[in-house]
Design a protein around this nucleic acid. Structure first.
Lengths: 358, 358
DNA sequence: CTGTTAGCGCCTTCAC
DNA sequence: GTGAAGGCGCTAACAG
């Protein structure tokens, strides 16, 4: 007797749907229906089953659900391996991954889903193999792609072949899958206009790696803003970076050697903006007095630099959340879902463009 | 013919162990043995099966492996919900989660495992229910606990009941599970000695939340270092913080109002160290000349503050990696595993304790 | 509305 | 050494 009680009170080892069925006095199938909010169950029976579930602390096994049914309750988030690991190793403070988890994980949790985070090489010849393997192992209900995967035809093509729903974060390209992005063009335009409004006319732009489609959009937005004020398209004012600190440094140095160096810079990410700041410091340029700087990433470090950088705030968490939401809805059979979503960005104005009294 | 080739070249929809068995001309079981590196398979047959696996691009389904066998190839990493989400939301740049992923995910990947990251409330009355639910759903092969869960008896007790292997990161408490920590005592001692070596005698210590066992260890280490130089144990020099910026500010303000304020501070985390820096700025104290500061977290923001902060570098990635490694080994039947591991820390000396020429 | 019957893909136990 | 049953926990497709 004592033993029995102990067994019951401690680890109710493995409560399965069978136990619940027995406890509620119904069949397995009825329990399954209740759990999945299926139709055709009398409210009274539903109550009874729910009570049994609560009493026994029953939680369905994900693995078994996937085996029997068609859903795995798993979403696969694919990030670029090299860039992600390098970011982690360097401790540079990029919080892209954190923001993705914030948006994606929490949305998944709301719906009883799980987000599994994986790294794959975009460049590698085995991208397809890597992605295929992850999918074969996990059988996710949907895949979230982040740049640069979002625009990798090898990956999107594979996903289409597989008939697996997917979301492309940061991609505005039309095509299969949900496109979820912010308006990089408008953001660059807004950033540039902010500088123009402050009276700057020689505004330099440091572009990102051309591998990322958004790099082009940002450059176009910059050009549009300049043209909008009747300023000539000066090739000298466009520096070609690749998102690294070194490339930002190089671009900035080149700017400084011009006969008429820019008085303001829009950099396509935080590292390149910080590089510009560093070069300014080396050359004795006061920020924002001699040189104004805007970053395209609002990572923690640009908020703690000296001065803190004005930056475009990307809605990373919101995009991840939207991606998860769309995929989950899609799997639930909903079909009036927007193929493309554009989420709002913000411009956080700080000391690198406007002198503060702080 | 064309059709067949296409079908083969595109999405080899679902390759199961059956297909491999047929392709290799052996039974299911033999394939299973090869996959799991089981014994009793002729090298020649093994070769043949491996070739078939490669040819078909077969990858076992995690869900099915878990259903049939006893392993799920999943490790569950449990973090504190409130603290983690707050960190993400604030964008304060804590990279604890990133370092955990770096260490844990990569180690898991090496062994064909996956790390699933979940958030649970330590304070909530339903800690047990939350943890139980996650375990019931996932059936992980092991659980990685981070502070403050590492020392939560409700959680560790449950895990013991369940017979699930687990690792306690940042906990030196003896008991079930693998304890993986750095030597907080020695780290605090080292940090304090660094200041003592620089000639400081009035050294203030801002402690962390007492809920974290490591808070106590750090305080002891500080006291030991002070005592080691024959300095009296002055209660005024110990400020009681809770890891928040506000608490650090308050502690520092209190220090400043002393008849003999400290000339150096050891803060138990980055936020409180930055708070001390902020207060110093407000009061016109030059760092490091008038006030030296050491942080206990080497997060990105302390490397970019002005001046950058000297900090204890915690081996977060290494601890996560070790945790994953131990759990995977344990599940593989290895049993000569160290119950407790202490990983080395470092002291990164920067401008907040030693004037630099930069 | 509810119960029954088949598997899902794999591993374990047992024969051969 | 290898193969043939059986079952893990659940859900889809049917019956009733």
């Amino acid at each position: 007797m004592v033993k029995l009680e102990q067994a019951a009170s401690t680890a109710a080892r493995k409560v399965t749907i069978k136990h619940v069925a027995a406890e509620a006095g119904v069949s397995l199938q009825t329990v399954s229906r209740v759990i999945n909010n299926g139709p055709n169950v009398r409210p009274e029976v539903r109550e009874r089953v729910n009570a049994a579930v609560a009493r026994l602390g029953y939680v369905p096994s994900l693995a078994a659900q996937r085996m029997g049914g068609s859903r795995s309750y798993l979403l696969l988030a694919l990030n670029d391996r090299d860039r992600t690991i390098e970011g982690w190793r360097s401790g540079e403070g990029t919080d892209w991954v954190d923001q993705m988890l914030l948006g994606g994980m929490l949305k998944c949790a709301e719906a009883g889903y799980r987000m599994i985070f994986e790294l794959v090489d975009t460049h590698s010849a085995h991208v397809e193999r890597e992605v295929k393997a992850a999918i074969a192992a996990l059988h996710p209900d949907g895949v979230i792609l982040t740049p640069p995967h979002s625009d990798n035809p090898l990956i999107t093509g594979l996903l289409v072949d597989l008939g697996l729903p997917f979301a492309r974060i940061g991609s505005t390209a039309t095509g299969a899958g949900f496109s979820i992005a912010m308006d990089d063009y408008a953001a660059a335009e807004t950033a540039t206009n902010h500088l123009l409004d402050l009276g700057h006319r020689r505004i330099g732009f440091i572009s990102g790696s051309p591998e990322y489609v958004l790099s082009g959009a940002r450059l176009q937005g910059y050009r549009a803003a300049m043209a909008g004020r009747g300023l000539p398209d000066d090739a000298d004012l466009v520096g070609h970076g690749d998102f690294t600190f070194a490339s930002g440094e190089a671009a900035m140095e080149t700017f400084c050697r011009l006969a008429h160096p820019p008085t303001a810079i829009v950099a396509s990410n935080d590292q390149m903006a910080l590089a510009a700041l560093r070069v300014a410091g080396r050359r004795g340029l006061a920020v924002p007095h001699d040189l104004a700087i805007i970053s395209f990433d609002d990572t923690p470090i640009v908020r703690f630099s000296n001065p803190p950088l004005t930056a475009v705030v990307q809605p990373i968490a919101a995009m991840a959340s939207a991606a998860a939401d769309l995929l989950i809805r899609a799997k639930s059979g909903q079909d009036d879902l927007p193929q493309a979503s554009t989420l709002p960005f913000q411009l956080a104005v700080r000391g690198s463009t406007v002198a503060t009294s702080d």
